[in-house]
């Protein structure tokens, strides 16, 4: 339960997209040729070259307009359903790093390319994507940076303190402290699925107003429990395994 966590304070996010670009830079992920579709959110969704995406959402409540930003990425679940789904087909393709808790896809995920839709739909947050060569890809928690004592690229770049990263307990403390301050002014303020994920978002409105997959659905929550019951195998992917792959 220790390891690392992110705390993403959406109330500090200005959607500068520094995180989105820093992620592409660190991972040397290509850009795609996009169009403006009547929205500033671009690329329109996470894709094989976009592990971090700032989502823009306009909502109107009682005549008051709000514009919410949600810097979406893999939540690095404490018990990752994607890992379980992959492992139904093949062992050792998904690592859950012991030291950090990072959930990392290996090259071997190519072998489950045909099962991609199943794997993607097992994720409560709709994160996994498939690269052209069949690999499953997503945020790696910058495990190469983190295991060398650096912050993840998206955290390092953030100018406002929206993106935070550190030991899980410290992040939970920070998150709860911030929540306490905001609760007074925003009664709907909450931490999303804090006990189940390593990427904890603070929002001040219903999570789905930010993004449809911001929070795990009740249905997926149930399947999560099923997963929980059967998935308590020891974590077998270690960092070493990843680095040598």
């Amino acid at each position: 339960m220790a390891g690392k966590s992110f705390f993403i304070d959406t109330t500090r996010c200005t959607a500068c997209r520094g995180c989105q670009i820093a992620c592409k830079n660190w991972n040397q992920n290509k850009a795609s040729e996009t169009k403006n579709t009547g929205n500033h959110q671009n690329p329109p969704d996470l894709d094989a070259n976009t592990f971090k995406l700032v989502r823009f959402s306009e909502v109107e409540t009682d005549g008051k307009v709000a514009w919410y930003f949600f810097a979406d990425q893999c939540r690095h679940c404490l018990i990752p359903p994607c890992k379980d789904t992959v492992e139904a087909h093949i062992a050792d393709a998904v690592i859950q790093d012991e030291a950090t808790g990072a959930v990392v896809y290996k090259e071997e995920t190519k072998k489950v390319a045909a099962q991609f839709e199943d794997i993607r739909s097992s994720c409560p947050y709709d994160i996994p994507r498939k690269a052209v060569d069949g690999r499953l890809v997503k945020c790696t928690m910058c495990i190469d940076r983190v295991s060398n004592g650096l912050q993840p690229a998206c955290v390092k770049i953030c100018p406002t303190g929206a993106m935070n990263f550190g030991d899980r307990e410290a992040m939970l403390e920070l998150a709860n402290e911030r929540l306490g301050k905001l609760k007074e002014k925003y009664p709907k303020a909450q931490l999303i699925d804090a006990n189940e994920v390593r990427v904890i978002y603070l929002v001040i409105d219903e999570p789905r107003k930010y993004h449809k997959s911001a929070i795990a659905s009740a249905e997926q929550g149930l399947s999560r429990k099923v997963v929980l019951r059967r998935a308590l195998k020891p974590a077998h992917g270690l960092l070493k395994g990843l680095m040598s792959s």
């Binding site: 850009a31 795609s32 040729e33 996009t34 500033h40 690329p43």
Partner: peptide
């Protein structure tokens, strides 16, 4: 202006990650 571009975009329009984020006149 938008965050992703600078001035007339002579520098930023040629940077794939930036033009990906704000690709077109709106």
């Amino acid at each position: 202006r938008v965050t992703e571009h600078w001035q007339t975009g002579v520098l930023t329009r040629w940077l794939p990650w930036l033009i990906e984020a704000e690709p077109q006149m709106f």
